[in-house]
Design a protein around this nucleic acid. Structure first.
Lengths: 210, 210
DNA sequence: GACGTAAACGGACTTTACCCCGTTTCTCCC
DNA sequence: GGGAGAAACGGGGTAAAGTCCGTTTACGTC
C-alpha cells in the first residue's frame, strides 16, 4: 500500500481523445452554423456529421446551449484581452468614462456581429446561468464606475442595470425581431449598432455629468 | 342572391366553446403553476388535467410560452390601467421624471412578484416576439422622456436601453440565479426589489439632471 | 327544427433535447 | 509491454414540444 492516500498530482487534466473530440465538435458546429443557421443545428446532426456518438456531444457540452457558449467563449477571450490589455481608450490607461463609452461601443459591435450564436447560447432549462450576459460586462462596468468616482451609490446594482441596458437590446430583444422604434424594416445591422452605441454614449455621458 | 357579397357583420368573434376552454385552460394552468412550479407544467399534463386534447391547448396558445404570456397579459392589463389612469405619481398628472421613477418602482415590483411566470413566458423558438419585455415599458418610458424635455437625442433607442435596464435584471438575469453583487445568497425577493428600484431611481435622476 | 359550413377538437405522430449504462479507450505505473 | 482503473464513447431510450388531419360541434340560415 504505497499508493498515496490522497491522490495528489493529477489535476483535472483532459484526456487526449477528449480534447481532440472537443475541437472536432467545435469546428463541425461552426461549419454547420455557417451552413444551416444556428437554430437548425441539432445535437444528433452535429454528432453524426462529426462522426461521433450523441452521448459524446452531451458529455462535452452538457447542453445544446453549452455548445454555443463554448463557441462564444473562444471569441470572448480575445475580446476580453483587448479590453484588459489593449490600447486606450478601450484598454487600461485612459479616463474611465471614456473607457466606459468605448467599452459599450466595442461590446455592442461584438454582440451584434455574433448575435446568432449569442442568442443560441441562451436557453432556460434547468439552472444554467446565462453566462454571456452579465458575466464579463458587469464587473468591468462596475470597476470603471468605481474608478470614475462619480459618487454613485450601490455600484453592484447599477452595474447590473447598465450591463442590461448594454447587452439586453443586442441580445434579446432585437436583431431580426424588432428593429428599434419607428424606423422599422430596412434597418441593417450596422445602423442598429450605431444607434445602440450612440445611445449608450448618451446614457454614460449623462450619468457621468458632474 | 341576397346574401351580401362582402361578409360583413361577422367580426372574428370567438366561438362559445372555445372561450370556455380558454378559461378552463388558464385556470388549470394557474393551479398547476401554484402546485408544481412553472417549469413542471407540461402541455400534455395541462391538457390531461383540463380534460382536453393536446391539440386544443396548442390551438389556443400556439406555444408553451403562449400560455404564460396569456396569464401575464391579464395581470399586465390591470397594471397598465394603474399607470395610464391611476393617481400620480404613477398615473398621469405629475412631473414626468417623478412618474418615470414611480414607474420603475412599480414595474420592478410587478415583475419580481411574477418572475416565475414572466420568465416562462420567454422562449426562443421560431419567431415569437418577446412580448412582455419592451412592449409596454418602452413606449411608456419614451413618452415620459419626451414630456420631460431633457434635450436627449434618439429617444427610440434610449427608451429601449432604459427598458432593458429596468426589466432585464428582474426578468432574465436573476431571481433564483444570481443575487446581485457581493451580498449573495440570503438576499430575499423584497430586498432585491428595493435594490433594483433604488438603482433605477439613481439612474433616472442622473439622466434627468439639468 | 334540419342543414351546411367553418371552426374547434383530439390524439397519434414527429422531432429533438437530454439520460443511462454497458463497452471501449486512454494513461499511468510496474 | 502488460495490466488496472478511470475516463470517454456510443447509441438506444425517454419525455416533452409542436404538427397534422380526420372527426365533432357550435351557430347562422332556411
Amino acid at each position: 500500500m504505497d499508493s498515496p492516500l490522497v491522490p495528489f498530482g493529477r489535476p483535472p487534466t483532459e484526456r487526449a481523445d477528449a480534447a481532440r473530440n472537443r475541437e472536432v465538435l467545435l469546428c463541425t458546429a461552426r461549419a454547420m452554423i455557417a451552413e444551416l443557421g444556428a437554430d437548425h443545428v441539432t445535437m444528433d446532426g452535429l454528432a453524426e456529421r462529426a462522426g461521433l456518438g450523441k452521448g459524446t456531444v452531451f458529455r462535452r457540452f452538457g447542453t445544446r446551449a453549452g455548445i454555443f457558449r463554448a463557441l462564444l467563449d473562444a471569441e470572448e477571450r480575445r475580446f476580453q484581452c483587448e479590453v484588459l490589455s489593449g490600447p486606450p481608450p478601450l484598454g487600461p490607461g485612459g479616463d474611465p468614462v471614456d473607457r466606459l463609452i468605448a467599452y459599450g461601443r466595442a461590446r455592442t459591435r461584438f454582440l451584434l456581429e455574433r448575435h446568432e450564436i449569442a442568442r443560441a447560447s441562451f436557453e432556460r432549462k434547468g439552472v444554467a446561468p446565462p453566462a454571456v450576459g452579465p458575466n464579463f460586462s458587469r464587473p468591468h462596468i462596475r470597476m470603471l464606475l468605481a474608478q470614475a468616482a462619480l459618487g454613485l451609490p450601490d455600484l453592484d446594482t447599477l452595474s447590473l442595470q447598465l450591463a442590461s441596458a448594454l447587452e439586453g437590446p443586442a441580445l434579446l430583444f432585437l436583431v431580426a425581431d424588432l428593429p428599434p422604434g419607428g424606423r422599422a424594416a430596412g434597418c441593417a445591422e450596422d445602423d442598429l449598432g450605431a444607434l445602440l452605441a450612440d445611445g449608450w454614449q448618451t446614457l454614460v455621458e449623462r450619468i457621468a455629468r458632474r
